[in-house]
Design a protein around this nucleic acid. Structure first.
Length: 956
RNA sequence: GCCGGGGUGGCGAAAUUGGUUAUACGCGCAAGACUUAAAAUCUUGUUUUCGUUUAUUCGAAAGUGUGAGUUCGAGUCUCACCCCCGGCACCA
């Protein structure tokens, strides 16, 4: 260690422009952040999403993410890690191509110009990137390996060509992947997508669906990222069952997660596109109706078709009947737009009693609704939770819904003890009917004499612990509906009056008061507006009647000859784009051999330079027009062949770029295995939530594939994934060029400096939360930097740090160290400000205190701290100095302030040594003047003492 | 509809695990100091209501989206509801 020799000479005024340029040059020259593999050191691979170099220049959002990871990277370096923090350009993509078309420039030229701007801007922010590893996805030396990976997919049969209906963007004139369609519109330009039938290259991501889902358990991703990916993959387990079509040898296969409701099937529904519909068309009696309906559905767009709010429609296939495999019952067959052709088997069994959509459909077309499940509510928490060791006692009871004789109001009992409202309930005696029990109980509990039984509504079962009787109760509530014919009423018995009042409520008031699940279900039953979709006890279900619906799903499935299967919502990845600016797909179409892969030795298949790369209306890539490039020889038979003219989506290059960082210049392999073993996996990856079901999912898929073919050492690419919140424009809207509300970082760097900008973006709010830009607030962090600069004047060589100064410094070390790890940058900076305020109050500041402060600020504001560090006489960079450690002796208080509370209200405080005994604290509190004042004339009923915190004296 | 995240001063936001008089830190605003003046800088103040004092002051109560609950004690826990943001959505 070199000894600092502070001269305590006043520094010149803080000139950010000079300082920032000076140190950036210096770091570049010294290759301060260039790393090599070093087996003696632990590695840390920190990653941010490499930017797409758009013509708009760097966005303040990039800075938020990059600064956060820069702070972490700088801290790791100083903790002794060998840190890889790389950068590159994800430069293929439509905006560049569109701009090139508009201006007549070559996309490669536009791209180069844009990445030059980005590089200049990133360097101006002082990020500690290893610039020697810079990569560019549009560099043939890079995309050679993107193409190579594609060939491996092809070899394993995971890349395949298929004619299918795809989403086509009429503005960008290209096909899109499912992940790129947002609410039926193109993710990039917002144009509603169209359907087109096209030959497409596909990647079989569905083969990895289960692992992509399951392996989320092995990585440290933010919970919301995991949920979102799981959602998207959409794993669902259920039964596949076959309904035979009567008088034929064909079956309708259906997928269901609720085989327990099989006995409640009253019809089956096919998607209008289902192939059985056309196969049986001649047998359908109402053929013309059916054909008309199919034609109508085909005309609808995806958005119209899948709007859940739209009223469902359908038409019966008359003359066809299906047979329920469970009980051989015949049911009708329908086609309807609410059944999707491409999910499950494209057909469903309809159970209107226990499925919302089926219910709605059945109501509309007057189809049978057959109840096969009665709700069973089992309390598993609270004081009435079922006790494992207590016996069950069954009991039948009537629940009475009672209507007023003249108004649309219903009777409820208001229980005075707990404020609950409920319907009149009474035990059913042996052999008694609900009607008899109900009428009797209504009279006993409410006094009303003329209740008339109208109908039974349904049954609800309930299991709970009956504390008074010390048994578990298994109650069967029969819900019945009564109407009062008039208001004739006897006086309520005294003991009933004590328990509850009688209140009349309107239907909406009833709905608002039913906060217990069983009462709510009873009320819903009565209203008949919804179906019961929960679990419970089976009825009308043959040999399964009386069983618990959850536990017999698999049994019912096998008894009906079905099988238990897993399905996914995830679809295979549409990998072709009909545009110029992407990696050419490295295959040729040979007249005699068909599709032939370009030999690996011939990679890369370079993008030809052309004059016109405008996309075409025909759905053919512009490359198709370049006959010189297209016409080639088959590598196999040397016969005539044409090159594939579709290109890859821009998600291709980004699916493996982090691997290339480990060995960016390798010409023999995409990355040397030893280097991969040293650097990968990525330890910490920060990026945007918008990539969760795109880039993040795609790259996990590629990585797993590369792992399977043995070329990468781990099965997951990223150990940890975090996400930053979006930076919005001042009004809270998205920043966009068209709205003219984009903040240009160059301006701020010019006026206030990169350090201020970095500090502001970290201080503006919680890192993971979206936040609106506010230029005024940058002044605060700029002042902070200036005050740190000025504090230098108070640094005197001979000064011994006071106890207070030491305490605040060590507390700050602790806080900043912890906050950086948790990405709580805003509170880390706030604690640095508090420390500065404290040190400014000192007469003079010890060198060690000031140094510690600078060392803590350094990751946030690397330039000004480097300058001040040097001014203290240090020859080595502050960014190679060890990360400060705190001494617990200074962070633990020796005295505690004890609050005096009287009946929970704070009335005063006193100080006492740490860990003073409870008895002592109580004594001290009672002797305090505040206590004396507030306790006068009162008597103490209870005293609560929390050591080191408070004494609460409760009085009456 | 379902799944996440959130609702605290004029604004961005703090508040270990329920417990040191809620609003740290920053912005803004107000007053003062310095200055011929302004900017910059520094100092002080800045939740609301009520009462009190000529005034500086002093005192009380309420207060973290709404309503209830648990507790000696709730921004923090429970229940119901309202609103905002993000994702998924006729997924069988």
């Amino acid at each position: 260690m070199n000894k600092p020799q502070s001269k305590a000479k006043p520094l010149a005024a803080y000139d950010h422009t000079k300082i920032e340029a000076k140190w950036q040059k210096q770091w570049d020259k010294k290759k301060a952040f260039v790393v090599k593999e070093d087996s003696t050191k632990k590695k840390f691979f920190g990653l941010i999403e490499f930017p797409f170099p758009s013509g708009d220049g760097l966005h303040v959002g990039h800075i938020r993410s990059n600064t956060a990871m820069d702070i972490i990277a700088r801290k790791r370096r100083r903790e002794g890690f060998n840190v890889l923090y790389p950068i590159g350009w994800d430069a293929f993509g439509l905006p560049t191509e569109n701009y090139a078309i508009k201006t007549g420039m070559q996309p490669s030229v536009v791209s180069k110009k844009n990445s030059d701007t980005f590089r200049r801007q990133l360097k101006a922010l002082g990020f500690s990137f290893d610039w020697s590893r810079e990569i560019d996805t549009t560099d043939p030396k890079y995309y050679k390996w993107t193409q190579w990976i594609f060939l491996q997919f092809l070899k394993k049969g995971l890349a395949y060509k298929k004619k299918m209906t795809i989403n086509w963007c009429p503005k960008d004139l290209t096909g899109l992947a499912n992940e790129e369609v947002v609410n039926g519109c193109c993710e990039r330009c917002g144009t509603p997508v169209e359907k087109r039938d096209k030959e497409q290259w596909m990647l079989a991501i569905t083969k990895y669906a289960d692992r992509l889902d399951k392996d989320l358990d092995t990585v440290e991703f933010l919970e919301r990222i995991k949920t979102q990916q799981r959602n998207w993959i959409g794993k669902s387990e259920g039964a596949e069952l076959s309904f035979k079509i009567k008088d034929s040898d064909k079956n309708i296969d259906v997928f269901t997660t609720r085989p327990d409701t099989l006995y409640g099937v009253t019809y089956v529904v096919l998607a209008p596109e289902h192939k059985l519909v056309s196969e049986f068309m001649d047998k359908i009696e109402n053929k013309s109706d059916v054909e008309a309906y199919i034609a109508k559905v085909k005309k609808e767009t995806d958005i119209e078709r899948t709007d859940a709010k739209k009223e469902k429609s359908g038409v019966e296939l008359k003359g066809l009947r299906a047979i329920n495999p469970a009980n051989n019952e015949e049911v009708s067959i329908w086609i309807a737009d609410y059944v999707l052709a491409d999910y499950g088997t494209g057909a469903v069994m309809a159970v209107p009693a226990h499925d919302e959509r089926d219910f709605e459909f059945a109501k509309k077309y007057n189809l049978t609704i057959k109840t096969v499940i009665e709700p069973l509510i089992s309390k598993d928490d609270g004081p009435d939770a079922v006790k494992k060791d207590a016996p069950f006692v069954e009991r039948n009871a009537a629940v009475c819904i009672i209507k007023h004789w003249s108004e649309d109001k219903y009777l409820m009992s208001f229980y005075k003890a707990n404020g609950w409202k409920g319907f009149v309930v009474g035990g059913i005696e042996n052999g008694e009917s609900v009607a008899v029990t109900g009428t009797r109980e209504i009279h006993e509990e409410t006094g009303y004499k003329n209740a008339k039984f109208v109908r039974e509504v349904g049954t609800i079962h309930s299991k709970f612990y009956h504390a008074v009787k010390s048994v578990n109760r298994f109650a069967h509530f029969k819900v019945a509906y009564f109407e009062l014919s008039n208001g004739d009423r006897d006086e309520m018995a005294e003991e009933e009056k004590k328990l509850h009042d009688v209140v009349w409520l309107s239907p909406s008031e009833v709905a608002a008061s039913v906060n217990r699940e069983d009462i709510r279900i009873a009320w819903n039953f009565f209203n008949g507006k919804t179906s019961y979709t929960g679990s419970g006890l089976l009825v009308n279900s043959g040999s399964f009647t009386g069983k618990d619906s959850e536990s017999i799903k698999k049994d019912i499935t096998s008894s009906a000859g079905g099988k238990w299967v897993t399905t996914f919502k995830l679809r295979d990845w549409i990998f072709s784009r009909q545009r110029y600016w992407g990696e050419p797909i490295p295959v040729v179409h040979c007249e005699s051999c068909g599709i032939v892969a370009v030999p690996e030795k011939d990679l890369p298949v370079k993008l030809p330079k052309v004059k016109n790369y405008k996309p075409t209306e025909t759905g053919e890539s512009p490359l198709a027009a370049i006959s010189k490039w297209v016409n080639t020889k088959c590598p196999n038979c040397k016969g005539k062949a044409k090159r594939e003219t579709d290109t890859m989506p821009n998600w291709a290059g980004s699916s493996w770029y982090y691997l290339r960082y480990a060995d960016p210049k390798n010409k023999k392999v995409f990355a040397d295995k030893k280097k991969l073993e040293y650097w990968t996996p990525v330890d910490w990856y920060n990026g945007g939530m918008e990539h969760t079901t795109l880039h993040l999912l795609y790259s996990r898929f590629w990585h797993k594939f590369l792992y399977d073919i043995g070329v990468v050492p781990t099965s997951e690419p990223y150990m940890k994934r975090t996400a930053h919140g979006l930076i919005l424009a001042a009004g809270g809207e998205k920043m966009s060029k068209s709205k003219g509300n984009v903040v240009n970082p160059d301006d701020i760097i010019g006026t206030l400096g990169a350090d201020s900008l970095r500090l502001y973006e970290m201080f503006m709010g919680p890192f993971d939360q979206p936040i609106a830009w506010n230029t005024d607030n940058i002044a605060g962090v700029r002042r902070f930097i200036e005050r740190v600069w000025k504090l230098h004047e108070k640094v005197q060589p001979g000064t011994v740090a006071t106890k207070d100064a030491q305490k605040i410094v060590h507390k700050t070390i602790k806080k900043v160290t912890e906050d950086i790890e948790a990405m709580r940058f805003n509170t880390a900076i706030s604690s640095l400000m508090i420390a500065l305020n404290e040190l400014e109050r000192q007469e003079s500041v010890a060198v060690e205190s000031y140094e510690a402060l600078l060392q803590l600020i350094a990751p946030f504001a690397p330039h000004v701290t480097e300058e001040l560090w040097a001014s203290l006489g240090h020859k080595d960079s502050i960014h190679t100095s060890g990360w400060p450690l705190f001494d617990a002796a200074f962070t633990v208080e020796s005295e505690a302030t004890i609050m005096i509370q009287i009946s929970g209200k704070v009335r005063g405080s006193f100080t006492a040594p740490m860990n003073t005994s409870k008895e002592e604290l109580e004594k001290l509190a009672k002797e305090s003047p505040e206590a004396k004042k507030w306790l006068e004339g009162k008597s103490v009923s209870k005293v609560i003492v929390v050591p080191n915190k408070l004494v609460n004296i409760v009085v009456v």
